[in-house]
Design a protein around this nucleic acid. Structure first.
Lengths: 339, 339
DNA sequence: TCATTTTTTGAAAGCGCTTTAAAATTTGAA
DNA sequence: TTCAAATTTTAAAGCGCTTTCAAAAAATGA
């Protein structure tokens, strides 16, 4: 059932039928009504490719997903995607999820941009200096970055949270409570958000003339296992930290385990503070000792990033947008114990 | 840069250029070489819509994602999607992630099927009796179901794990250890996999003449919070279970917390066994007391489901495929304590 | 009533690709 | 050298839609 068949059935031209269905004003009410009903009844749906060819619009945006055999998606990514999806639906867009490896990524970007398969590209969690942003600029396609590139001077549209500020405040809070030895179990070191967080922590230490102990700042994939391993190592060394910052709740999950393993008490023996991306199935207030957090919904960021991307298709901008981060105090932090 | 421009540049017809680029045999080696180089050099990419219009193929499959404002994706879903993505990439397909609400779902299915935007549809986690499968059948588009519809008599292509068998074996194991009061914290009751698991547990109970206590089988969304709440409730009642089955590791996370809250010991006071979808950032062997599990990789299922969907585009089948589930014993289960 | 304006409809071109049918060229056997 | 067969290339149609430009129909006003 295509437009021609439908218009022949109605005894009208394709032009009129097309206009009636797409809400153009130069169609009489009666005709529009008649066309709508017939379309409904005959189950007509416009062919996507044909429409795309005629209009030059795809009605979809691309989100690139890094995949490798056996390597899973980051749980935070799923939450972000869920927000993107919510916005996409309400905006009438589809999401093209393009799985790539590091090797195929550039070619995929080029293909997506130049084949007209999508109207825009969403990039998330860029590296400290990310050539993909340069590439997107070159490709001349609307794009939006969730996170930002720390090493870039040119303006480009992004949405990020104030990672540096958040971890500065968190570290400062712990220092205020008397902590001098603060461990920081961070995300992967090449990711810009992790770097920003480290900068925030180091600023707070510097402000208080505390020397940075490199062994107390680590980078790794944000999993329970990593949290456990590093916390165990930190607690078992001679000069153990009295407070630990975690870049994610999953890390905190492992940290909690390592702390309990050693029969230490959270909030008194060891203070614990983690960043909370607001993942509904893992809540800091549900930890055995409710967890102090820096909090920012990654899902809300997905919604907003998608909205801005779509807005930018018609009206490009290069605005950076930085969200403040809440600091939420719960029982997992307390004054430094007198070691 | 389109095909016409490229062919004019080369002094060849569009036909020849198209054939050269698409690997058709009736092009001389010399010509093909010349065309490839020019295409490369001029950065030519075929227009996706035009190709789709001409061939009737989309090169993408749809995965439907249920979204609602503020409601997040299930973490298991992200893992499944990651597997689908891996397979999609190696097969050269894109994934169209279609966000829907319950209300828009049917219309979206129809649109996807009839607009030719995708070549197939992947449906995951069907309900016990799921009209969406009937709909897909009607729409006459290749599809594949991850999971299955318990109430269906007609054949259709699916891939599922043996949920019933897995939970039958798990319950039987606990019964063999002397447990009579076994709690089962299950997933949402309208989902078929949850229903299958309940059937397995009830079969094992029936086999041993143990009466089913309805208060010991619950349905809910598979989160830490739910696990905590139900476990607490079960442990606090007069006739508390000595063993608890959880439908997911996230539920187990909460269950563990509730058990420790009561100063009970996992493996001796309370036995705990959960289903493990093999989520890399949350491993049962990393629980404080390593967790006994039924195990099946949901990511691997995603890979396979995608492969079968794509295979089914050219050669439709209606085969159901059921994977066995491993039962892995770890320290979290032990003989029933003499209450 | 008829010229004029406004409203409604239609013919046809074009989006960029694939593919059929036909033409041009090369090859090889007689 | 010749002609049929095999190889290589091309013209043109068609995929299903949108949109420009033009025409027809209806409404308006003097």
């Amino acid at each position: 059932m295509n437009l021609r068949a439908l218009s022949e059935h109605l005894g009208l031209s394709q032009t009129t039928v097309s206009r009636a269905l797409n809400g153009y004003p130069e169609v009489s009410v009666r005709t529009r009504q008649r066309v709508s009903e017939a379309a409904q009844q005959m189950g007509y749906r416009p062919n996507h490719a044909a429409r795309g060819l005629a209009t030059g619009k795809a009605g979809a945006i691309a989100v690139v997903m890094r995949t490798a055999a056996g390597q899973s998606a980051d749980p935070h990514y799923g939450e972000f995607l869920s927000g993107v999806g919510e916005a996409a639906m309400s905006l009438g867009y589809d999401i093209l999820l393009s799985p790539v490896t590091r090797e195929t990524e550039e070619a995929t970007f080029r293909r997506l941009a130049q084949s007209g398969q999508v109207d825009g590209i969403l990039l998330s969690s860029p590296f400290i200096s990310d050539h993909r942003i340069t590439l997107l600029d070159e490709l001349n396609i609307p794009y939006m970055v969730h996170g930002r590139d720390g090493a870039r001077s040119k303006l480009y549209p992004f949405l990020d949270i104030d990672n540096k500020g958040a971890f500065f405040e968190a570290a400062r809070l712990l220092i205020g409570l008397g902590h001098r030895k603060i461990g920081f179990i961070n995300g992967l070191g090449n990711l810009n958000f992790a770097n920003d967080r480290a900068l925030g922590v180091m600023d707070a230490l510097a402000e208080n003339n505390i020397e940075v102990d490199p062994a107390l700042i680590t980078n790794g994939e944000m999993t329970d296992e990593y949290g456990y391993r590093i916390t165990a190592k930190m607690l078992d060394r001679a000069n153990a930290p009295t407070a630990i910052l975690c870049a994610s709740l999953f890390i905190a999950l492992g940290a909690v385990r390592a702390i309990y393993d050693r029969n230490l008490k959270i909030g008194s023996d060891v203070s614990l503070l983690a960043h909370d991306d607001v993942i509904p199935y893992l809540k800091p207030e549900n930890f055995r000792v409710p967890l102090a957090t820096t909090r920012s919904s990654i899902r809300a960021a997905g919604v907003r990033a998608m909205q801005r991307l779509v807005a930018g298709i018609d009206a490009p901008t290069t605005d950076g947008e930085v969200w403040p981060v809440d600091l939420i105090v719960r029982e997992s932090i307390g004054p430094a114990s007198q070691g």
